[in-house]
Amino acid sequence: MLRTVSAGVTGLIFGTGIALSGMANPAKVLNFFDVAGQWDPSLALVMVAALIVAFTGYRLVLRRSAPLFEAKFHLPTSRRIDVPLVAGSAVFGIGWGLSGFCPGGAIPALGLGEISAWAFIGAMLVGILAARTVRIALQQRALQSA
């Protein structure tokens, strides 16, 4: 119970940060990308502030042997720069640049009651499920032919 409440409060802090920073506002995100036009540099400051806090905080936290509620830290272990990482990230950037919505920005925008945010998140979940189905099918085909 305590761990679920704790995650809820952490999500609340995350969503508040997204909402105040302007990351939930697609027009602001698009203007941040529009370096040749109506450039709004605000979102660079979001990243700088988030990175300073996270970099410093992670150094303190990861010195401990385990997190508060779990036996160990769940850190990504892969270090390979592979095709899915680069191609997937390139595709994500194209989608982000088309609408100004990204997953972390659109989730708090749902709370604003904006229909466009709901449409984006709905389509995005379909995209994630489709991608996962394709990956699983490819893996099974590789196993069968092996």
């Binding site: 989608g95 990204c102 972390g104 389509a123």
Partner: peptide, 29 residues
């Protein structure tokens, strides 16, 4: 402040593209 200047069909196309991209890219912003 919230303003989505892009027409709805493009928002949904963008959602599909983002979903596929972040899944294969293992993460987002």
């Amino acid at each position: 402040a919230f303003d989505s200047p892009v027409p709805m069909p493009w928002v949904m196309i963008s959602g599909l593209i983002v979903g596929v991209g972040v899944y294969f890219g293992s993460g987002c912003t």
